[in-house]
Design a protein around this nucleic acid. Structure first.
Ligand SMILES: [Mn+2]
Ligand SMILES: [Mn+2]
Ligand SMILES: [Mn+2]
Ligand SMILES: [Mn+2]
Lengths: 225, 225
DNA sequence: TTAAATTGTTAGATTAGTCTAACTTTTTAG
DNA sequence: CTAAAAAGTTAGACTAATCTAACAATTTAA
């Protein structure tokens, strides 16, 4: 009996996580190295080395000794499919089930591996084919196409212009809870009132209501239009 | 570094499926054999043999060579916890997401392994702490307690008594779709009008509307009160 | 431009989960 | 009560996913 894998293109949960990591890295770096993957998944380089050989066998990525690693179209498509499931899940957990944006990621990390078109199509439908997840990340459509979006970091903003929060780059619970505490969420209006030269911190007006000060780090993690 | 397992009581997806099978078998048989488990999970007896040794090590079941296998309290508790997650998921998929009762099981088989109290507590809450899943199976509460319920098979029923459908014993898609096709669902009213002696088939009146004939097999798979 | 540091590869070991094949114990039927 | 059948066990092999340790290639910096 031959392995099903060969015919169905079935892929393990672990392999899915490698593809996701590969895709994310491809957005950050031009050349993906074994070390990049090892660091991002917190596993040893030797382990990555054997895994990329397997993924290359399955035509999910291209690999030659000592050269940079590249996803194939097939690999990229699969990665986007998992990303779609992850982000749809996050939005579902937030919008339908009422969980906080800091609570959804860990659950979505697990649910993204569920194999059921029915389940995710229904989520997509219930949410009205959404384009962005609770952190402002774009949700690939069923064909793997990403919505176009152009946002800049608040740290690049100018004084007295009206900005709208469209996403966050840091997804850590502590950071998201901090944003909750100052009343910021996706869609909030931010106006920069002053920029301190010495530490790049900003005085900001939030939703035309409260004034506060954001460190440069905070500003770098806020995406606005 | 010692294995986390020992301390956290963490358990693999495969082990969870063994526990579930063990629990289900314990309701059907007094003495659970290696063969029972092998048959119910569709794996070889030798594989079961090694796995039960592992589960015995983890104090999830009691095992002695050639003797019947028994879940420990710890093992039973874990099995009920997984069963709870499975059945809550099925009801959620049906009630909240609008899937058919023949579509929910396969998805629940996967989602039952998600590790998140938050997720399942929220489902439980959204459903109002339900007691039965879409097939009429009892949902254990957070402490593993099962709701009491007494139902009999329609095949044991008598003529002209009013019965209410509370559950089904066969969960196959074909059977559930058949019930849909005759307009039967949980809560439907069934009155036996006649019983054929030669094949134990029954003439039945459904919801005071339509009359039809059910084979003995159908009647055995319908639970009523 | 060579030495050190970094990155990458290979070999070999380990664990979970599965199988087949051979053997043993228990159960069942004649 | 025995012989055959069924059930159970053990040994040995394999795959996926990981690790450590040793070694090799590439990159960086002195
Ligand atoms: Mn996420
Ligand atoms: Mn997100
Ligand atoms: Mn089910
Ligand atoms: Mn059910």
């Amino acid at each position: 009996m031959l392995k099903d894998d060969i015919f169905t293109g079935m892929i393990t949960l672990t392999e899915e996580n490698y593809l996701k990591a590969l895709y994310r890295l491809s957005l950050e770096t031009e050349e993906i190295s074994v070390k990049d993957i090892a660091d991002s998944l917190d596993i040893k380089m030797s382990t990555v080395n054997s895994m990329i050989k397997r993924l290359a066998e399955k035509k999910l990525l291209r690999y030659e000794k000592y050269k940079a690693i590249e996803l194939t179209e097939k690999g990229k498509k699969m990665a986007l499919h998992i990303l779609r499931k992850h982000r749809l899940t996050e939005l579902f957990l937030s919008k339908v089930m009422g969980l906080g944006w800091e609570e959804v990621h860990d659950i979505a990390e697990q649910i993204e591996h569920i194999q059921s078109d029915l389940f995710f199509d229904r989520i997509d439908e219930m949410l009205g084919h959404p384009k962005f997840d609770p952190h402002g990340e774009p949700i690939p459509d069923a064909n793997g196409k990403l919505p176009v979006f152009k946002a800049t970091q608040l740290s690049e903003g100018v004084i007295n212009k009206k900005y709208k929060l469209t996403g966050v780059l840091n997804h850590e619970t502590a950071f998201l809870k901090f944003l909750d505490s100052v009343g910021l969420s996706i869609g909030s209006v931010i106006v920069i009132k002053d920029i301190q030269d010495f530490d790049r911190s900003m005085s900001v007006l939030l939703n035309n209501k409260s004034k506060t000060i954001f460190s440069q780090t905070v500003c770098e993690n806020l995406l606005v239009v």
